[in-house]
Simulated assay, not measured.
Amino acid sequence: MNETMVTLQGWLGSDVTVRQAGDATVASFRVACTPRRYQKKTDEWVDAETQWYSVKAWRGLGANCERSLRRGDPVVVHGRLNAQTWTNSANIEVTSFEVEAILVGHDLARGVSQFTRTPGAGQRATGVGSDAAGPEGGLEEAAQEAAA
């Protein structure tokens, strides 16, 4: 399976909107990424043009995004980059890009965040969670042992 994975670091450009797609919750939001470049000639940092990305987060991740994220928050998004080509009203072929989020979080380089575990969030399809440490104990127990 060859998929293009991307990681975005930027700012939430809108509040999260949520809709139902069948039985699944899907959250949508926009992320603005403004690259900075150092210009040696002027000895200063300069902002490049802001790039906007549409992001979709499904099911529990989408619900958590709705509860956790607000416009203007610094975020990090990791997911699959999908291209969609369509023809607009002027009969011009347009390609738009959307990120299907796998992981979303606040950018802790820009502030602090408070984490609250949701019920049932310890197990995910990726194998991360309380069962990931095997039958001898979960990740929480391993973290507590390491802290002791």
Score class of each variant (00 low, 15 high):
Y53L: 10
D131T: 04
H78Y: 07
K41P: 01
A125P: 09
T17N: 02
G129H: 08
G13Q: 03
F29Y: 06
L108G: 02
A147S: 15
S130P: 00
K41Y: 06
L8S: 03
V112K: 09
A148E: 11
G60E: 12
S130Q: 15
G127P: 03
T42I: 13
V55E: 01
R110N: 04
N82H: 12
N64T: 06
A148W: 05
G60N: 13
A121F: 06
Q51H: 10
D73F: 15
E49W: 04
P74A: 06
G127M: 07
R71N: 11
E145Q: 11
D131C: 00
A57M: 01
T42W: 09
D73S: 12
S14E: 15
A21S: 12
V26Q: 01
A125L: 13
F97N: 08
M1K: 05
L69R: 03
Q20E: 14
R67G: 03
D43M: 04
E44D: 07
Q51Y: 06
P35T: 04
R70Q: 08
N91W: 08
I92L: 11
R37E: 11
L61H: 01
R80W: 05
R19Q: 13
T118L: 10
A63S: 13
R80P: 01
Q9E: 14
G79P: 06
G72P: 07
A132I: 04
N82L: 09
T126N: 15
A83V: 05
R67S: 12
T7C: 06
W45D: 06
A57S: 02
T85G: 05
G137C: 06
V6C: 03
G10Q: 07
A125V: 13
A101W: 02
